[in-house]
Simulated assay, not measured.
Amino acid sequence: MTTLPMPSLRLTAAAAVALTLWSGGTAHANTIPGKTTTPSGGAEGKNVFASASYSNIKVTQVSGPTGGKRGSISSTDVNWKPPPCWYEPVFTPEQLKEFSETVGLGYVSPHVSWGGVKLWTDHYRDSKDATNWNDDSFSSASGYDDYNLGKEGYFWRGVAPDTADPDSWGCDRVMFWQNAGEIPAVPNAPTPKILAEYAYNKVEVPGTEIELRPTARSTVNLPTWVWLDKGTFQEVKVRAELPNTGLWAETTAKPVALHLDPGTPDATVYPASGDCTINDDGSIGTPYTAGKASEAPPCGITYLRATDGSPYQLKASVTWQITWQGSDGTGGDLPNGTFDTTQGIDVQEIQSVNR
Rank of each mutant, 00 (worst) to 15 (best):
P166A: 10
G329E: 00
S75H: 04
Q234Y: 02
Y154D: 11
I284E: 02
Q351P: 00
G68D: 09
P93Q: 07
V174H: 09
S53M: 03
N134A: 09
P298Q: 02
A216G: 09
D126M: 09
D308R: 13
W133N: 11
A306G: 01
S23W: 03
Y303F: 13
S218L: 03
E152K: 15
D135M: 06
N221G: 00
T12H: 02
A141H: 04
Q178L: 12
T302W: 03
Y144A: 04
V186R: 11
V236P: 08
N148A: 13
S273W: 08
V238L: 05
Y303E: 04
Y312Q: 11
Q348P: 00
T215F: 08
G181Q: 08
L96I: 05
Y288N: 01
F49S: 07
A180I: 01
A29V: 15
K46C: 00
H123F: 09
T38W: 00
A18S: 13
K118T: 08
K193L: 06
A52K: 11
W22L: 13
S23C: 05
P7S: 12
P255H: 02
A185I: 03
Q95I: 06
T289Y: 06
R173E: 11
T252H: 06
D126R: 14
W177E: 12
N188T: 01
C171Y: 08
Q325M: 04
T268D: 13
Y270K: 02
G71I: 11
S8Q: 05
T3M: 13
D165H: 01
Y312L: 10
L242S: 10
N47F: 10
P65D: 04
G331A: 07
G115L: 02
M175N: 02
F339H: 15
A267R: 09
E235F: 05
C171S: 13
E88M: 12
Y198C: 08
A290V: 12
T102C: 03
P297K: 05
Y303H: 04
P243I: 05
I284A: 03
K128V: 07
W120K: 03
V186F: 12
G115Y: 01
P83G: 03
A296M: 08
A306M: 00
D77E: 10
E204C: 07
D308F: 08
G68T: 12
P33D: 10
Y107K: 13
V238G: 07
E295L: 14
E94P: 02
T338R: 13
Y107I: 02
A249F: 05
A185Y: 01
L334Q: 12
M175C: 08
V90K: 12
S8V: 01
T251Q: 05
T264M: 12
G231C: 09
